[in-house]
Design a protein around this nucleic acid. Structure first.
Lengths: 205, 205
DNA sequence: CCCGGTGTCCACCGATCGGTGGACACCGGG
DNA sequence: CCCGGTGTCCACCGATCGGTGGACACCGGG
C-alpha cells in the first residue's frame, strides 16, 4: 500500500486529490497539510512513501520544504503538483530534489501513475516540463547579474537617474554607470529601459 | 435542490468541489466542464442555479464566459472561484456580472454558504476581495492611456529611442516626445523607464 | 457652438545617458 | 602565481532625453 501525504493550501484541491487517490486499491492518503513547514514536520514523524507537494504555500514554500525533506535523508519521495510551469518553479523544484513534477491539469490516471512511479524510485515529469528542462539545457546560460548589478537595476526600474542611484547606494555616479554598462552587456541590450524589461522577463527583477 | 455546474480546467479541483458539494443535502452537481465555451453552452441548454467558474481556462476565459451568460439573460448565477486575487481579475469578473468572487483557499463551509447565497440572489465576496474593491473605489482612477500612447510606450519598453520609435510608427520624433510627455503626466512619472515599469504594474503593458 | 481629448508637429536648451578607454583593490579558484 | 569576476572610480564627448512653450486639425459629447 502506497502511503501518500497531501501538501496543498487549498481545501478544494486536497479534497479532489483524496477523492482521486482513495479510489485506488493500492493508494492511501495518510495526511493532509497546508504548508511546507507542516509537510516537513509530518514527514519527520511519520514518513509516507510519497508527498504530493504544491509549490506556492504560505510560509515555507514547496521547493524549500522539498529541499529540507531530501536533505534530511528521508525515504519519502516528493512529487510536485502545481499550477505553475515557469522555468523558475521547475528548476527550483528539481534542484530541491523533487522526484516528480506534475501540473494540476493532469488526469487522474496520470496522477496515479506518477505516484506509483515515484514510489518505485522513478523520476516522473509532465511532458511539457520535460520540454522546458531540455530547452533549458540547450540554451547557453547568460552570465548572471551580480547582487550589486541587480540592486542598481532595480533602482533604474524605479526611474532614478544615475546620480540619484549613486546617492541612494552611497557610491559614485561613475560606478553606477560602470555597473549599468556591464548589465547591458550581460543582457544584450544598450538602453536602461530595455535592461529593466529584459531582466523582468528573465525573472531577475 | 440547488443545481450547480462546475467550470474548471483542473480535474483535481472539479473532483474536490464535487466531493465537498455533494456532501450537502440541498446541493447537487449537474455537470463539469473545463472551458468557458463549454460552460456557456451547458448553461444555454440546461441552466443550473449556480455556476462555479474558474477564471483562467483555455480558450474563452471565465470572465468572458460570465459576461456571455449574464448577457444571455440566463437565470443562472455565476460565482467565480479562483486562485487569483489581482485587481484585474476581480474587476473583470465583477464587471462581467459575477454574483460572487471566492478564492480557492475558502473552506468548505464558506463555499457552501456562498453558493446558497448566490442561489438566493445575493452577491457574495471573499473578505479580502471586498477590501480590494473598496480600495479601488476610493482611489481616483488615473486617466487611461490612449492606444497610441500605449503603442509608443511598448516600443520604449523594447529599448527604442524616440527617433527609432518615430521611424517604426511613421511619425515624427517630436510627436513621440509629445506622447511620452503625456504618458509621464498620466502615470505620474518623469522618466521613460519608470513609465514602462509603472504601466506594467498597472497592467497597461 | 464650445470644449476636452487625441494625434500630429516645432524650436530651444539644459540635463542626462551611454560609449570609449582607461584604472585599482580584493577575492577565490585553478 | 595567475586570472577572471566584482566593486570601486575617472575624463571626455557625442547622442539622446525631457521640460518648456508653443501650434493645428479632427472628433465627439454636452
Amino acid at each position: 500500500m502506497i502511503r501518500v501525504l497531501l501538501a496543498d493550501d487549498h481545501p478544494v484541491v486536497r479534497q479532489g486529490l483524496r477523492g482521486m487517490l482513495e479510489a485506488e486499491d493500492d493508494l492511501t492518503v495518510v495526511g493532509e497539510v497546508s504548508s511546507g513547514a507542516e509537510a516537513v514536520e509530518f514527514v519527520a514523524n511519520d514518513p509516507p512513501d510519497v508527498v504530493l507537494m504544491d509549490l506556492r504555500m504560505p510560509g515555507l514554500d514547496g521547493a524549500s520544504a522539498t529541499a529540507r525533506i531530501v536533505a534530511s535523508g528521508s525515504r519519502s519521495r516528493v512529487v510536485v503538483l502545481t499550477t505553475y510551469e515557469t522555468d523558475t518553479d521547475i528548476l527550483r523544484a528539481v534542484e530541491a530534489g523533487a522526484a516528480g513534477y506534475l501540473l494540476k491539469d493532469s488526469t487522474r490516471d496520470e496522477l496515479v501513475t506518477a505516484i506509483r512511479g515515484a514510489a518505485r524510485g522513478e523520476t516522473v515529469l509532465a511532458p511539457s516540463v520535460v520540454g522546458k528542462l531540455v530547452g533549458r539545457v540547450r540554451t547557453p546560460a547568460r552570465p548572471a547579474l551580480s547582487a550589486r548589478e541587480v540592486e542598481v537595476l532595480r533602482l533604474v526600474g524605479r526611474g532614478l537617474s544615475n546620480a540619484e542611484i549613486g546617492r541612494e547606494l552611497f557610491i559614485g555616479e561613475a560606478t553606477v554607470k560602470t555597473h549599468l554598462l556591464r548589465v547591458f552587456g550581460k543582457l544584450g541590450v544598450s538602453d536602461r529601459t530595455a535592461a529593466v524589461t529584459t531582466a523582468m522577463e528573465q525573472g531577475v527583477l
